[in-house]
Amino acid sequence: MIKKMEMDEERLREVLGFSCIGLPEKEYAEVLDRVNAVLRMCDDMQELDSSNVSPFEWDVMKAPARRQDRAVVWEGRDRFLDQAPVRDGDFFHVPRIIARDDVEMEGEE
């Protein structure tokens, strides 16, 4: 039986980075509460013996065939680029890429 794990602020800060989401610090508590509420609900699952159970997999009636290796040209390319927010000629344009970005973001609305 594993010990109950609790999500904390430190991990939440990491998660904000992983998910590229900013959150005002005053709302940390609410998110942590909700995560931990889900985790506490899950604690009960440990009473089940799932040692012989595989992770969920679909029952299939008839599996579809895999895709044949034939190239198709997409007609919508130019229109798509026209709509793209960061088009630059034939490319997409992104700002400076820095290896580690510690930009701290407050929750913007």
Binding site: R67, R70, A71, V72, W74, R77, G89, D90, F91
Partner: peptide
């Protein structure tokens, strides 16, 4: 001839970007 998960041509070397 095509990509792993879509029917785009794999012949990309020298192609115009994003075609």
């Amino acid at each position: 001839k095509t990509k792993l998960f879509c029917s785009c041509s794999s012949d990309y070397i020298g192609a115009t970007p994003n075609t």
